[in-house]
Write a protein that binds this DNA or RNA. Structure first.
Lengths: 340, 340
DNA sequence: CTGTTAGCGCATTCAC
DNA sequence: GTGAATGCGCTAACAG
């Protein structure tokens, strides 16, 4: 309650020892008599004393903080990923600084607008789709960097195998007996990352392996895009019996159109998403899970490892995806699929 | 790219001035010749120099950082609220430190496990439902505190008027012509905050004002709870024509049961949620929006105000809620409601 | 308007 | 095993 929070000197005084002893104890450094150690601990507790990372960092050069940079904080994915990162950093007693870059990213200097230099031990970027130039600018701040959701050669990265994800999803639909499988994706102009490209490629590869011709449509991004795309598919002379969407948002838009049109899922059309969005469970949507929490946890631990020196700063970790089977996919009517 | 990041001395040297002049310029302090100011800026830019908040904080006593404490990071609400807080703090050039307390909260000492003292200028708690004792322990760290989603007398708080929210929702259903309106809530034993209580009270008040008897059921929390509760309601001799849920998660569970049972929404039963969860739009669920982004923004700005001294540290801000009309509510069949 | 001086709270040499 | 000096990078009083 005192307005002047206790300092190390206060603790030293109270414990009847010197500053350095307190420092040693509180850092867990060796070479202190057990009895003295206990006394110091006790004094610190009584004063609710906590070491100022500010001051200790000044001398050690380590801040005890890791900056996490995200484009947005609102989309479901980021909260979950941050949760994993947070848990991993907490294990190593590191604090998490979160920067939402958002639209300001357009303003060229965002990498320097952030007080990173000297204020952070490492930087984790999440789904930032950094250009090589931006990467270099971040290199410039002189701290280790870990990229999440992006695979950059020579830099620590954690990402999922998007290609395998959609390939597996396509296989799932093929196994059910579908052959007219359409793909709804985002428009090429809006691709910020390799992710969109990889997902499309996975689908195409899956189709090709089965000797089928890929059939993909791209409208806008987001739910509306899904609505538009599904509208187009439903207007086709011979509509697909199964639809795979690049991400759940698109699938949800598609689902809405299907509901409104009275087309039954999965009886008439099977629908499959990607991401395992929160709302996918609500819609009983079969989807591909990318375990964002695990991604975050892995990225966080990798960061700790790089700081420790126990992990290389160019390690790449590819996380597996997993199909979550729900009610929105089934064999087409009259098919010879697995389930018939 | 140099391994030893530039310090203020380097800038001073490069600009041919003294340390204090550089400090003044970089802080935007008055009393520097425009020409000199430019020169210093230039030198700093060239060296990609950024002031170490660590070092400056050591002498000013301000860290330039605000800690945000959340129980969890995964639920949709927190990402959105954090986004608002982040934007508000960024306006004031404050960094955001995020602590996910989670289950560790059970371990008594969480308020002290966090390195808050001396490491943060203010603390924002989001939906933490702090006990008076926990509040006091946080007071102890000696920095201003702002509570979000909780109304604590004497402490800066930002929260929504839950009572008015459910009262308004109930009125909406009444206006449509419903009289058999049931309420699905969480179990009293699981109420952590006043929020659950207030929402129930708002419903009860709305019903009472219309001369109707409240009818509420509580099963588990979460989607499952909604399923169970709706199951019970559907098994009633005379089922309700409208159902209001304490939050969208419950409504989603209820919606699922209705779909599975072939009960049409809104034709047979109107369903209404609370929170405007992401997935509510997908289900076309009428709900009550509590604008979490605005809550975060407001809380962030209030925090800045308290730090500035322009806001009182016991200000209370009550945020309005708003009904989001979608397809899940309509007049009961054969009613004389507004829409008939 | 500018430079000099003295710490902020702590970790880290070194002596003892 | 412990204590006394030194300086991390910076701001805030001062002096010029």
């Amino acid at each position: 309650m005192r307005s002047q929070p206790a300092s190390m000197r206060d603790v030293a005084h109270r414990a009847g020892v010197s500053l350095s002893t307190v420092s040693r104890v509180l850092r867990g450094a060796p070479g202190v008599a057990p009895e003295v150690r206990r006394r110091v601990q006790h004094a610190a507790d009584e004063l609710s004393y906590v070491v100022s990372r500010n001051a200790s960092g000044l001398v050690t050069g380590r801040t005890g903080r890791v900056a996490v940079i995200v484009p947005f904080l609102q989309p479901w994915f980021f909260g979950v990923a941050l949760s994993g990162i947070s848990d991993a950093l907490r294990e190593a007693d590191l604090d998490m600084l979160v920067y939402q870059v958002g639209e300001t990213r357009a303003r060229e200097g965002w990498t320097r607008a952030l007080p990173l230099r000297r204020n952070t031990d490492a930087v984790i970027t999440v789904s930032m789709d950094l250009s090589e130039e931006e990467c270099q600018r971040l290199d410039d701040v002189g701290v280790p960097m870990v990229l999440v959701g992006q695979c950059a050669p020579g830099r620590a990265s954690v990402y999922i195998d998007d290609r395998a994800g959609t390939a597996g999803a396509t296989q799932h639909l093929l196994n059910l007996g579908h052959t007219r499988i359409a793909y709804i994706g985002s428009r090429r102009e809006e691709w910020s990352s390799g992710s969109s490209r990889h997902r499309l490629e996975g689908y195409e590869a899956g189709m090709a392996a089965a000797g089928l011709t890929p059939w993909s449509v791209s409208k806008a991004t987001g739910r509306t895009g899904g609505e538009l795309a599904m509208g187009e598919l439903l207007s086709d002379r011979d509509p697909p019996t199964a639809v795979l969407a690049e991400f759940d948002g698109l699938a949800m838009g598609a689902h809405r159109i299907l509901r409104r049109s009275g087309v039954r899922v999965p009886e008439s059309i099977s629908l499959m998403g990607f991401d395992n969005h929160d709302a996918a469970a609500v819609l009983d949507l079969t989807t591909v899970d990318q375990a964002p929490y695990d991604i975050g946890l892995t990225a966080g631990r990798l960061t700790v490892g790089v700081l420790d020196g126990t992990a290389r700063s160019d390690s790449h970790v590819e996380m597996p995806t997993q199909i979550i089977l729900r009610q929105s996919t089934a064999s087409p009517r009259g098919s010879r699929g697995l389930s018939s």
